[in-house]
């Protein structure tokens, strides 16, 4: 419990900054909605000039684009991208922070097991993400209610927003396994930027072909907003894939970390 609280306190500042940035980003996008809605015709015309592949990649969907949830799901792809960076940063920090700040010796010579340490740190990171998502969702709902003009479904809105958290969990787990395997990560941000953007572009690239199988290669494509809007639910196969990756990565991290030599620095 003491490690958990210590971690939570250590993440406090960065959690606040990330949360604030995500909310600002969402508010800016959402405030564009009313003007886009007013010039709907013109906007659609412009969009049509883009090749279909690019429209798909960016998540434009003509049918949905002018509804609140449709517009929201467009901005969600950017929110998810940033939120993934936050999660990846947290995940990568779990082990590498102790190595970089040379505090591993302090923590690991205390009467706790390594898995207790990982659990406490993981929980600290997850709770930070939960807090971010709760604040974000509250702000997003508030913004959405401002435009409650058309057929707005709170359930769909919630399901859409929750995908941010799910994608974050996947990246948290990926970050964790990376930091356990490569213990001496000098710059967390470089690593997380590289990994997150790699997956983002892989997702963008594969999405243009429209083949379902290829979507498995990028967590960014596990949650198809069009599908969620249409069915008010997630695609089970991708939900399972996401959960499997997360659980496997975390389990592997525990396994590797328990056997790892912690060298003096």
């Amino acid at each position: 419990m003491n490690i958990f609280l210590h971690e939570l306190k250590a993440y406090r500042k960065s959690t606040m900054i990330w949360t604030f940035s995500l909310v600002i980003m969402m508010v800016l996008f959402m405030s564009l909605y009313s003007s886009i809605h007013a010039d709907a015709e013109a906007f659609l015309k412009v969009l049509k000039n883009y090749p279909e592949a690019i429209r798909n990649a960016l998540g434009f969907n003509e049918k949905n684009f002018l509804t609140v949830v449709g517009f929201y799901s467009f901005l969600l792809s950017f929110v998810t991208l940033c939120a993934s960076l936050q999660a990846m940063n947290l995940g990568t920090s779990i082990v590498s922070k102790e190595v970089r700040e040379k505090t591993a010796d302090f923590l690991l010579t205390k009467p706790v097991t390594r898995s207790q340490i990982l659990t406490a740190k993981l929980m600290g990171a997850v709770v930070s993400l939960v807090i971010t998502n709760m604040i974000y969702f509250a702000a997003a709902s508030f913004m959405a209610f401002q435009f409650k003009a058309d057929d707005f479904s709170m359930k769909i809105f919630f399901l859409l927003s929750l995908t941010v958290f799910f994608v974050q969990l996947i990246f948290l787990a990926l970050g964790m396994i990376i930091s356990v395997i490569f213990q001496t990560i000098k710059s967390v941000l470089t690593v997380s930027l590289a990994v997150v953007f790699a997956f983002y572009f892989v997702g963008m690239f594969f999405d243009t072909s429209g083949e379902k199988v290829k979507r498995y290669f990028s967590p960014f494509k596990y949650f198809d907003t069009a599908y969620i809007i249409k069915h008010s639910s997630y695609e089970p196969s991708f939900l399972i894939a996401g959960a499997a990756i997360t659980i496997l990565a975390i389990a592997a991290s525990y396994f590797i970390y328990a056997k790892r030599d912690i060298h003096a620095v």
Partner: peptide, 10 residues
């Protein structure tokens, strides 16, 4: 335990 090089959380 007292390590040779001491580094603690900033």
């Amino acid at each position: 335990y007292l390590p040779s090089e001491v580094f603690y959380y900033d």
